[in-house]
């Protein structure tokens, strides 16, 4: 019993997410209770504006929860300093990076900041971690390019490498395949899956790639306006959870194919 508890890296208790505006409180979702185990690829799905990003932002402490608690390795993240949290959790965001002349290597090296001294000196172990991250994401050939010259697909791999260099147990990615074509989308998904298997990290992503997520994710979280499902893809298929994801007029979930198909044109 103790063993299974130790395997839970991220846990939420009655978490309510949303925005605190001046007078009103806008609740996006309440009573979220999650337990995410070590070494899993978790995909959060739901239509635009349903609160995927808000959830991820709250889990990563970019934004404060309205109520409830979040635990990383049994520690309440409210009690962790930014520095402590940065060794537990790393991010890949959708926001565009400010235009600078950083090289790919420098950008990945920034991932070592939680471990470097006050002047940001890279020691041997830092350099090794950076090299491993570069190798795992297969971007050796891009090392000396400037990041602003890269294609969206390459940049996404570089940002993943940066998160890997940060050497955290949890990596959260907000729509990592947002601007990518099918080929690069699959490439990113399989890279993430591979990383989960190889490194036993927990990777949490938000995505619109339902069909891919069903095939590759270990756990899925389905958000719709009034329901919330969490479980493995096969469990969710059995429970007919996917039908809640989109309005039924256009697409319908086909259980035997395990994917969405267009109802009619």
């Amino acid at each position: 019993m103790k063993n299974s508890k130790e395997n839970i890296v991220l846990k939420t208790e009655n978490l309510t997410i949303g925005y605190q505006q001046k007078k009103r409180t806008k609740i996006i979702r309440s009573e979220i209770n999650l337990e995410i185990k070590k070494g899993k690829l978790v995909a959060i799905l739901g239509k635009n504006g349903i609160g995927k990003s808000t959830l991820l932002r709250t889990l990563s402490k970019v934004q404060e929860p309205l109520s409830g608690k979040i635990f990383i390795n049994q520690k309440n993240i409210q009690e962790l300093s930014e520095k402590e949290l940065s060794t537990q959790l790393s991010l890949v965001l959708t926001e565009r990076l400010p235009e600078s002349q950083l090289t790919v290597y420098e950008l990945i090296a920034l991932g070592r900041q939680p471990y470097t001294n006050w002047i940001d000196k890279l020691c041997a172990s830092d350099i090794e971690k950076i090299e491993v991250a570069i190798e795992q994401t297969e971007i050796e050939h891009l090392k000396n390019s400037r990041f602003h010259e890269l294609s969206d697909g390459q940049l996404q791999r570089v940002l993943i490498a940066r998160a890997l260099a940060q050497d955290t147990e949890i990596i959260i990615l907000d729509e990592p395949t947002a601007h990518l074509d099918m080929h690069h989308t699959i490439k990113i998904f399989s890279l993430l899956k591979e990383l989960v298997l190889k490194t036993q990290k927990t990777i949490i992503i938000s995505s619109h790639e339902v069909n891919l997520a069903i095939q590759l994710a270990d756990e899925m979280m389905l958000l719709s306006s009034d329901t919330f499902h969490f479980g493995s893809p096969s469990e969710l298929i059995k429970a007919n959870a996917f039908t809640t994801l989109f309005p039924k007029e256009l697409v319908r979930f086909n259980k035997t194919l395990a994917q969405f198909v267009i109802t009619k044109i």
Binding site: T87, L89, L91, L97, P98, L110, G111, P114
Partner: peptide, 13 residues
């Protein structure tokens, strides 16, 4: 250089 969200996630106050 990566923006405030990334800087924060790197442990910068």
């Amino acid at each position: 250089l990566l923006g405030e969200s990334y800087a924060k996630s790197l442990g910068i106050n």
